[in-house]
Computed example of a mutant assay.
Amino acid sequence: MKRIAFIITLLIVSSCAKDNSNFTLKGTIKGLKKGTVYLQKIEDSVLVSVDSIKIIGDKEFQLQTHLEAPEVFYLKLDKQGEENNLIPFFAAEGVTEINTTLKNFFMDAKIKGSAQQEKLQEFKLMMDRFQDKNLDLIRDNLEAQRNNDTIQIDSSLKEYNNLIVRKYLYTINFAINNKDSEIAPYLAVSEIPDANLKYLDTINQALPPEIKTSKYGKELQGLIDERKKE
């Protein structure tokens, strides 16, 4: 009886959470015949599921939750016990749509949703360019090592260090230029937490009050306070 009562309680809580939802994630997974999709977020450094749905013969899905503020969530697919890559996205009140494929779950994802997500995609596009350049430098360095070309080795190392600096400066400038969005503190804590403290402070000071008190605004302040103790 206690077990039955516990299950009923969980169902009631889940139902209430659905009724109180202000965010919907919908979309399709081309090629999926059977599996479970999860809507997840990070709580205390651990991914937790806030909603899920089993898919059987229907590639479409819809998940819901209640958002206190814009936050990065994750779409996860579990296909017959085989967990695929996560798809991260910036959720805000309203509807976000993700269309992807089973074959390339992460890479094929097309996301349409919040203004914060648009900024995140803009940022990721530039990061992809930095990554491409990084791969070119790795290739050049390996070739130089095979040829025992010390001049080219030193040159590629300098270019690599310059690339890292450019990547950090781009992230800092992007955050400051988008200080009115939750994307600013999010990038600071997720992409450059080890940056020079003065740059993190600069981003933090540029944030308006409503962004400073957001989830990632508080995390940025906490990061700065912790770094100052070191």
Rank of each mutant, 00 (worst) to 15 (best):
K158M: 06
D108G: 08
L11C: 14
V46G: 00
K212T: 02
V50F: 02
I4H: 13
F90K: 04
L67D: 03
K167L: 15
L10Q: 09
F61I: 01
V189H: 01
T9A: 12
I87V: 15
L77H: 05
D58P: 01
E93S: 11
V189F: 03
D108L: 12
Q80N: 12
Q40Y: 01
Q117P: 03
T9R: 05
D78E: 14
D225T: 14
S45A: 13
D140Y: 06
F106I: 06
A206K: 13
E43G: 10
G81E: 14
Y74M: 11
L125Q: 12
G35M: 03
N178R: 03
P209L: 12
G31K: 11
A92I: 14
P208R: 10
N204D: 07
L86P: 02
N104Y: 15
S52N: 15
D128N: 11
T96I: 11
V50N: 01
K167V: 03
Q64P: 03
Y186H: 10
N178E: 11
K41T: 09
M126H: 07
Q64N: 11
M107V: 03
R146G: 08
S214G: 08
K167T: 13
S156I: 00
T9E: 03
T28C: 10
L220K: 04
E118L: 04
C16G: 02
Y186F: 10
D136Q: 13
Q64F: 01
F89G: 06
D201C: 06
D194F: 05
Y74S: 11
G217I: 01
E219Q: 12
K34Y: 09
H66L: 04
D194T: 10
E122S: 09
L169T: 10
N178I: 05
N196C: 02
E43C: 12
N141L: 09
Q80E: 15
V50S: 09
L67R: 01
E143C: 00
F90M: 15
K54Q: 14
K34T: 05
L120Y: 13
L137M: 08
N141V: 06
Y38G: 06
F73N: 06
P88T: 10
I56C: 05
N22I: 05
E118C: 01
I151V: 15
K30F: 13
S14R: 01
G31E: 10
F90A: 14
Q62Y: 05
S190Y: 13
E68D: 07
A109G: 13
L11N: 04
T24M: 14
I192C: 14
N178S: 02
K2N: 14
A115C: 00
K33M: 12
S21K: 09
E71K: 15
A175I: 04
K59N: 13
S114L: 04
M107R: 12
T150I: 15
N99L: 15
N204Y: 13
V165I: 15
M107C: 05
Y160S: 07
G35H: 04
L47V: 08
S155E: 09
D51E: 14
S156K: 01
A175H: 00
P70M: 12
I87P: 00
A206M: 08
A184T: 06
K167A: 13
E97G: 06
R3Y: 11
Q205D: 10
K103P: 02
F6A: 15
F130E: 09
F23G: 02
L157F: 01
F61C: 04
A109K: 03
D149P: 00
E210R: 11
T150A: 06
K179N: 03
Y170M: 14
L11F: 09
D154V: 05
L200Q: 00
L125R: 15
I42Y: 11
T171Y: 04
G35T: 07
N173P: 03
